[in-house]
């Protein structure tokens, strides 16, 4: 399978184990890679998410696609810069990416071009702070600022 993938995809391809292939591609070829993989029987989008690599000032987009026929899961990754992050939608390839893309906007602030609901609230109604899954969002600070600590009157012996 790896050989077949290597034929159609330009990028770093690593066979981590018989059932896991890691594919790293440039961000402009992300959707074309997924399209090619779909043609190679990777028909199910299992998960589409992002990781905030705050030290590199980059987001890593991760799409997990699965081939029922070959029982292989491909982890497709690409990096995009953190300033004004934007990607093209992949709903035309995998329709169930729709809400995952909305989540990317809400949790990371990544705008998805071509997704009408992108950057609209999904889980967090009325959220005005930084996108919460970014590493620079400090949830403990947020909690101490927004909620009162419970004051317990301790009873000693």
């Amino acid at each position: 399978m790896v050989e077949e993938i290597k034929k159609v995809i330009k990028g770093e391809i690593l066979e981590k184990s018989p059932q896991r292939i890691i594919i790293k591609v440039k961000n402009d070829s992300f959707s074309s890679t997924l399209n090619a993989l779909k043609g190679l029987s990777f028909k199910r989008l299992t998960l589409f998410t992002a990781v905030d690599f705050v030290k590199d000032n980059q987001f890593e987009l991760v799409a997990l696609v699965y081939s029922n026929e070959n029982k292989i899961l491909a982890i497709v990754k690409t990096r995009i810069p953190k300033e004004n992050p934007e990607i093209e939608t992949i709903t035309n390839i995998y329709p169930n990416a729709f809400k995952y893309e909305v989540e990317l906007g809400e949790m990371f602030g990544i705008k998805v071009i071509g997704n009408p609901d992108s950057m609209k609230p999904f889980l967090l109604e009325g959220w005005e702070d930084l996108p919460p899954l970014r590493k620079d969002f400090d949830s403990i600070k947020y909690a101490t600022e927004h909620y009162e600590a419970r004051n317990v009157e301790v009873k000693y012996d």
Partner: peptide
């Protein structure tokens, strides 16, 4: 299929855990 996508940066806490919830595609858009 229920899964965790797990990223470690070599410290004592997970760097990122993404939960592959089964019901996500079952609700949206099915």
């Amino acid at each position: 299929e229920y899964g965790f996508y797990f990223v470690s940066d070599g410290t004592d806490k997970p760097y990122r855990v993404s939960v592959r919830g089964v019901s996500m595609p079952h609700m949206y858009p099915l």
